[in-house]
Design a protein around this nucleic acid. Sequence first.
DNA 1: CTGTTAGCGCTTTCAG
DNA 2: CTGAAAGCGCTAACAG
Lengths: 333, 333
Amino acid sequence: MTTRADVAKLAGVSESTVSYVLSGKRPISDETKRRVQAAIDQTGYKSNYAAAALAGGLPRMVTMMTSNLFLAPPSRIDGALVDGIVAGVRERGFHSVIWPISNDDDSDVDVLLQLNFSGGVILMNVIENDPRVHLLHSEKVPFVVLGRSNVGFSYNFVDRDFEAVYKVALSKFKALGHTHIGVLTGHAVMNSYLKKVAKDFKLKLELMHTANSMDGGASAAKNFKKKHPKVTGIISLLDIAIIGFVTSAPNFGLSIPKDCSIIGVNMLEEQALSTVPQISTVAFDAYDMAKSCGRIMVDAIEAGKNSKSKKVSEYWVGDFMDRESTAKLDGGS
Amino acid sequence: MTTRADVAKLAGVSESTVSYVLSGKRPISDETKRRVQAAIDQTGYKSNYAAAALAGGLPRMVTMMTSNLFLAPPSRIDGALVDGIVAGVRERGFHSVIWPISNDDDSDVDVLLQLNFSGGVILMNVIENDPRVHLLHSEKVPFVVLGRSNVGFSYNFVDRDFEAVYKVALSKFKALGHTHIGVLTGHAVMNSYLKKVAKDFKLKLELMHTANSMDGGASAAKNFKKKHPKVTGIISLLDIAIIGFVTSAPNFGLSIPKDCSIIGVNMLEEQALSTVPQISTVAFDAYDMAKSCGRIMVDAIEAGKNSKSKKVSEYWVGDFMDRESTAKLDGGS
DNA sequence: CTGTTAGCGCTTTCAG
DNA sequence: CTGAAAGCGCTAACAG
């Protein structure tokens, strides 16, 4: 194992100079830089993470925990979120890994915490009253939740401003004269934000509970007229199902442009652009949201370390795009 | 941050005693153990991974790298593999994480290697001539490939004994009098092991190239009679597609028990049990295979460290189950 | 702009 | 059965 000392000797400089060349934390002459770099290349030296973490006082690593990695459907959103987190965290000079959770074993969380190699934890797919949240909190591990489970969440989190999103969507339904709105969702109960906004707009909501899959969307389309005769507008919280719904609707005698308006709110930009032109979306950039989540995580870790009590509390990502129509963006009619 | 020193002081013992209580590497009196444990509980002490890795001389951590986490389909096999690795690695006292790979960026691999916080790497979903393999090798990072990409692979790997598997499957076809065998696969070219075994049995193989999804299986069933009139036996290398094939076959006028025999070879036990009784399987325990992969990985890491030159080379998992019929196991007719 | 040095928290001899 | 002490490789003062 080559160490910093070997490099220093070869380059004819002190050990700390090597460190500073690597970290860039103090000015180094070009000549010295060059020699050190040459020595590094020659020896194949690689910095030792453990030593750096120990000496630096904190592990420059964040851990993602998500419980749905191997459970279908693997939403493209999940991928975008992971990529975004990696980018945001890296931007702050940290690294990130995913902690593998066995489906049926919460003890993995203990292990991670016990291990203590990670400076902070990003929780995804939290459920109502998630035990992991309480554990993380009581263990005083810096963490942030990406997509929180309920209103009034009292820990660090990053999420879309759903109230604003729903307002955009429902106001459009209202303007088009719709009165009964179907809600395509994977949850058995109505989203409380949506309920609140609908009340303000005096719109009736009907739950269209279905799986987030092409099949789920298709079967929702199949039963649509029978089950929801009054519904003329549909807001979809499911990115895959809505595509299934739209593409299979014609097979079940649904003429989408005439019969109803459809708005998807939980879609990536790319997904929005790939669906049929009749559908409207309030698309969002999951990657970007996750990226800021990554940054916040690192800030929280460093705040904790320096105990500067820099408040890193509720972070509500309010940025979203109001897509009038994907067709419009696409240059279509 | 409570350290080992705090615990030692509170328990009235030396620092090293605390270490030995934790590691169990030398006999400690029950009384001392109890006092140390009490002090640990009281202070909420957690061992520092970085310090342990540094002092211990090697990072007790392995990293999994898989490129298909967020690309459909998320085979149940993937989940089983991850869980198995975690178990195997943990059995040896190591931990494991997943390294998040951006879909389109190989540089992530460099970062991981540069980071040097992981004792070894388990590669999954390697492709033909995978650049990661060469990188890992040239960087001298211990690694093992789970499921290798081609015959004659010259690095550590763990995989099923496909030759044996194919022998079991094809011998059954032979015994039943089939002569033309369809191969349901996601690859555009015929598997070379399969080709070899078929030659021995004097069986003709026909490629049935399709996606590993329910839809893929369904469309294979739809075109089956037209495209492969002579085929009476099907061997499936795809766990999801075969289910789609079998369940949708009747819709396309295929009476499976009469017309042909079907054998799935890339299925988990649980999947095998859930399919229709007409199908035979040579099912396998992906979890168990991955578990031994985890153990091998750790052994390789430790071998490298102690340079005991314990040969950890080609490891061919030969264990597999010959399932005559799922119905039989199920207690069915 | 560069060198020297004191630790970070733990593991592991060596010495009882 | 237990303690004392020497590092692991790096970071970040401190001192030019």
